[in-house]
Every structure is written in structure tokens, then in C-alpha cells.
Amino acid sequence: MAIMEERRKKILEEVLKNGTVTVHDLSQKFNVSYETIRKDLNYLAEKDQLVKSHGGAISNQNSIENPFTLKREENIDRKQSIAKKALSLIPNGASIILGTGSTVYELAKLLVLRNNLKIITDLIPAVSYLQSSNNEVYFLGGKLRPKSSSVYGSWTEEALDQINVDISFIGSDGFHGFFGPTTPSYSDSAIERKMIFHSEKSYILADSTKFERKSLYEITDWKNVTGVITNNDLKERFIKRLSKHTKVILDNFKDE
């Protein structure tokens, strides 16, 4: 019994870390049968700790909000590929807003290689990374929200009301069942809605696993978003559905 409980705990850790897992990989990792893994996934799904998918499982973003330090380790290769694509859309001398999100953080890390940009953000790790760059970097003040490593509140909103930028980049926890990008935080949704409103163009950065996840609060309608940058292994049905409302931009991700 103790061995089974420990295995299920480690399976959940794998799901939270990677965002998605397969029965095949878990079977090899824990040296047990496919049937044993399926029983484990059924048990965890019944406890609402993950969501079963075809051939595996994905993390249940709706039931728990993972801290930023854990989120940034999920699907890291996918996020880095999306960040590279987003970087290619930023012209020299542009003014940009970076919202919250671990994929946005990956973009911030690449912006160290650029210069002469005006970068505005509420994401604390992004500011820490960008302080060594040759860009003008502005941090939006406000009340600290540790879960997302960002700030929010009236100070943040008042600062956003005084600016207009060329492009904003916003993360999302999922789209399933909504008419736009979502976040688990009501306060984050208010801030990111304003970021989009005060931008000439706005892009949602989200890896392809987010299309089968859902969160709590809708940030805005797809009609207010310039495009979604995601992985090129996105299922065709999602591309067709989303393309009716906004532009879908695929990266060059290669699943090794």
C-alpha cells in the first residue's frame, strides 16, 4: 500500500512539473504495467487532482493554482520555442508590455539579447532578469501576489491607464469552455485586461496543452486579441476553431 501511495504521489508530481504525461512514459519510469498506471490515473482523476486524456493525463489547472516557481518548469521546451517565435514579432525600438506567466518569462529572458526596447511589466522575475539588458525597463508597482510573482491593485491599474504600447504579451492557464484566454486569479485578469486594452497589438503565449485545460476567470474575448502563439503540434480542430476568432501563430517546436 505504501509503495502504491508513493508512486501516485510521484505521478502527480510528474504531471504538475510537465503539464502532461503518458501512460507509456509512466510505465517505463516506475517499472509497472500499463494497467497499473491507468488505475493510478483513474484514482487521481477521481480525486480531482488531474484530468485524464487520451493515452495519459494533464494537470488540473482548475482545481489548483501552482506557484510560479513550479509553473516555469512545466513544458519548458515548448515555452522556449513559443518565446523565440514571439521575439521575432518585436520590431526594433518597440514598446512592449509583459504580463504574468511562465511562457512570458521565457520571452523576458530572450529580451536580454535585444536593446533599445521599452519594456513594461508586472512580473517580478522578468524585471530581475532584464535589469542587465540594454533596454528601458519599467516595473508596475502594486500589491504583491506571490502565487504569480506579480503585482496588482489600483496602483498597477492607474499606471497602465497612463500608457499605450505597441505590443503586449500575456500568458494563459487554458481556454477550454471559455471564449478567450483565462487565469486562475481575478486580480490578474483585471490587470491583463487593461494591458491588452492599452496595446496596439496583443498576443497570448500558450503551449498546446493549454487548449485542453480550463481556469477560473476569462481575461478578454478572442476578438480583442491579435493572435495566439502556440506549438505547431496543436490539433487541427483547435486551429480551425480558434482561427474563426483570432490569428493562430505556430512555432517551430520539435518534440524530441
Score class of each variant (00 low, 15 high):
L16D: 09
L16F: 09
K17F: 00
K17I: 00
G19V: 00
T20E: 15
T20A: 11
V21M: 06
V21A: 08
T22G: 02
T22C: 01
V23A: 02
V23T: 05
H24I: 01
H24S: 01
D25N: 13
D25E: 10
D25G: 01
S27E: 07
Q28D: 15
K29Q: 15
K29F: 06
N31V: 03
N31P: 01
V32L: 08
V32D: 02
S33V: 07
Y34N: 05
E35F: 06
E35S: 09
T36C: 04
T36H: 07
R38I: 02
K39N: 07
D40G: 11
D40Q: 04
L41I: 06
Y43W: 09
L44R: 11
A45P: 07
E46V: 00
E46I: 00
D48T: 10
D48P: 03
D48M: 14
D48N: 15
Q49V: 00
Q49L: 15
L50G: 14
L50I: 12
V51N: 15
S53L: 12
G56E: 10
G56R: 08
I58Q: 10
I58S: 09
I58N: 13
I58D: 10
I58M: 02
I58L: 15
S59F: 11
N60F: 08
N60Y: 10
N62R: 14
N62A: 10
E65W: 03
E65L: 12
N66A: 13
N66T: 01
N66G: 06
N66L: 13
N66R: 12
P67E: 13
F68D: 12
F68M: 07
T69D: 15
K71R: 14
K71P: 01
R72N: 14
R72M: 13
R72I: 08
E73S: 03
E73L: 13
E74P: 01
N75I: 00
N75V: 00
N75L: 03
I76C: 11
D77Y: 09
R78E: 15
K79E: 06
Q80L: 05
I82T: 09
A83K: 05
A83W: 02
K84E: 15
A86M: 08
L87F: 10
L87P: 10
L87W: 02
L87Q: 13
S88M: 11
L89G: 04
L89F: 09
I90W: 05
I90V: 14
P91G: 02
P91Y: 09
P91V: 08
P91H: 09
G93N: 03
A94E: 04
A94Q: 07
A94C: 14
I96T: 01
I96V: 13
I96E: 01
L98W: 01
L98V: 10
T100R: 04
S102R: 05
S102F: 03
